[in-house]
């Protein structure tokens, strides 16, 4: 038996023994995994399971109490996030990573135009030709199904679903290799969720993005992710192929989660 190698054999992100404690409370305990380019990982679990804490550590917004996260920079070198310089961190946040918040108001500037929201990320990486920025912003609005006629309107005039799509455009315009998503369909109506999920699914496929999606919604995990990690009380209790974990859950808690889904 030979281990057959896939297209990309170098991991993009490696988490080793990630732990976060607040005093005696351990929010996240000893989480390790490897993410490859183009791979979508869902982290599922109920509120308080530690999944959001984990996402913050993975995206360098929270320092772990123990363990480390390494990321393969564009030069091919795997680097410990804790040891990056300020310029390298900025590069990750502004260009190579995206972060889609549950609440679009956290990821957008609500009072400036939609076009500026998208264009801002381009200007941050040195674009300075107004015409090109506007053209790129328009084409991204189209890709996320926002009427280009609304380009000069501020997102505070947008519906919840439009805001979330705008947040996605703002994140993807710099062609990141990795996108973090925190309950991306969280506050939306069910009909709006389906459209957004479908859009995210096709964008992730087309762009070959790697993504780490935190969700308590197993339908989101099923539609978007290749692999899933189930968290409970700060620990990863089950992990595997998404359809395998959802169709043949092994742990009692995972069986409970899966059995709690209301039939459509």
């Amino acid at each position: 038996m030979v281990e057959v190698t896939g297209a990309s054999d170098q991991p993009l992100l490696v988490a080793e023994g990630l732990t976060k404690s607040y005093g005696r409370l351990a929010a996240c305990r000893d989480v390790s995994f490897v993410l490859y380019p183009g791979e979508v990982l869902a982290i599922v679990g109920e509120s308080g399971s530690g999944k959001s804490t984990l996402l913050q550590m993975l995206s360098a917004q929270l320092a772990p109490s123990g363990g480390r996260v390494s990321y393969r920079m564009r030069d091919g070198v795997l680097r410990d996030l804790a040891e990056l310089g300020e310029a390298e961190r900025r590069f990750l946040f502004r260009t190579d990573w995206g972060y889609v918040h549950q609440d679009p108001a956290q990821g957008l500037r609500m009072a400036v135009s939609a076009g500026a929201n998208v264009g801002e990320r381009l200007m941050a990486v040195g674009w300075n030709n107004y015409g090109r920025i506007r053209q790129t912003a328009s084409s991204w609005l189209e890709r996320v199904e926002i009427d280009v006629a609304r380009i000069d309107d501020a997102p505070r005039t947008y519906s919840g679903g439009m805001r979330q799509r705008l947040q996605i455009a703002r994140n993807l315009v710099t062609e990141p290799r990795l996108v973090f998503m925190d309950e991306p369909t969280g506050g939306l109506d069910v009909s709006v969720q389906a459209r957004l999920l479908d859009l995210m699914r096709s964008l992730v496929n087309e762009l070959g993005l790697a993504a780490i999606v935190v969700t308590h919604d197993l339908a989101v995990a099923r539609l978007l992710s290749h692999r899933v990690m189930v968290m409970k009380e700060g620990r990863v209790i089950e992990t595997g192929l998404t359809d395998q974990v959802l169709d043949d859950p092994r742990e009692p808690y995972t069986q409970l989660l899966v059995s709690s889904i209301l039939p459509a």
Partner: peptide, 19 residues
Amino acid sequence: RHQGEMIDVAGAEPRLVLN
């Protein structure tokens, strides 16, 4: 038989199964 080699689906990594 996957890409000319026998692989064991029962014990394979998720990436290999997807592949």
